[in-house]
Simulated assay, not measured.
Amino acid sequence: MVLITEEIRAKAMIVYGDEIGQEKTVFLLQEVGLPTGLLPLKDIIECGYVEETGFVWLKQKKKIEHKFQKVGRQVIYGTDITAYVEKYKIKKLTGVKVKELMVWVTLGDIVVEDPENGKITFRSPTGLFRTFPASAFDGEGPVREIKEPMGVLDKKNTKETNEVKEGMVGNEDKKEAILAMEGMVVNEVKEAILAKE
């Protein structure tokens, strides 16, 4: 995470409070061409933006968890989130983790690589990545405060994922996205094991 110094604060536009923080966050996402539901935060305390560098920080009262229903992904947003934004990109993101199978993975970059076809790619600092339809991240849904430690298996989510895999709920796009993601993770684990041998 980037230390927010007095020098950075002096160059930044800073707002305080949840309502104005939410508005500025949505406005900034719109300005850089990213889906407005990427940061469904709650109880924002402070939001800062340094236009010349694109540096952004957000502080909220508590960690929250949000599930993006259209892609079946759970995301944890920490109390302090920082990033650099530019057109169609969020770079050097800190404070955000996504659940991949049963493991929480830190996100590092978010890029709309194909704005015309609405594809958005999420990358971890370790090189893992996933691409989804950008429309899956428009708008926002309910968030919940984190009460259990990160890494605890969410049995409800596993049940929902299994139902989707079996075709019992959801549409074909969601089912394909989950199966593709799981296949990619398995292949990456196999490659990592083979590389060590």
Rank of each mutant, 00 (worst) to 15 (best):
M181Y: 07
L38M: 12
K99N: 11
E31Y: 04
G170K: 05
E113Q: 10
E182G: 07
L179R: 10
M168S: 10
K61C: 04
F137R: 08
K67S: 08
D80F: 12
G183P: 00
S124H: 04
E46R: 06
A192P: 00
L153Q: 12
Q69S: 13
E46I: 08
L39N: 00
Q74M: 15
T36H: 06
N157Y: 08
N157P: 01
L194S: 13
T121W: 04
K165T: 04
V164S: 03
L107N: 00
L179F: 11
M13E: 15
L194T: 03
G37R: 12
E86Y: 10
C47T: 10
D80W: 09
G108S: 14
L194I: 06
N157T: 09
G37E: 05
P142I: 14
K165P: 03
V186W: 07
Q22R: 15
I90V: 07
D138T: 14
N157M: 14
V32L: 04
T82E: 08
E166Q: 14
I110N: 00
M102R: 08
G95H: 11
K89M: 12
V186D: 07
D154Q: 08
T94D: 15
G78F: 14
V2P: 00
E23D: 15
L107C: 00
P35I: 06
G17M: 01
A136D: 13
L153M: 05
W57V: 03
K67C: 04
K97T: 03
K92F: 08
V185L: 09
G48V: 03
K147G: 03
I14N: 05
G127A: 05
K159S: 07
D173R: 13
L58T: 01
F122H: 04
K91H: 02
N157C: 12
F68P: 01
A12C: 04
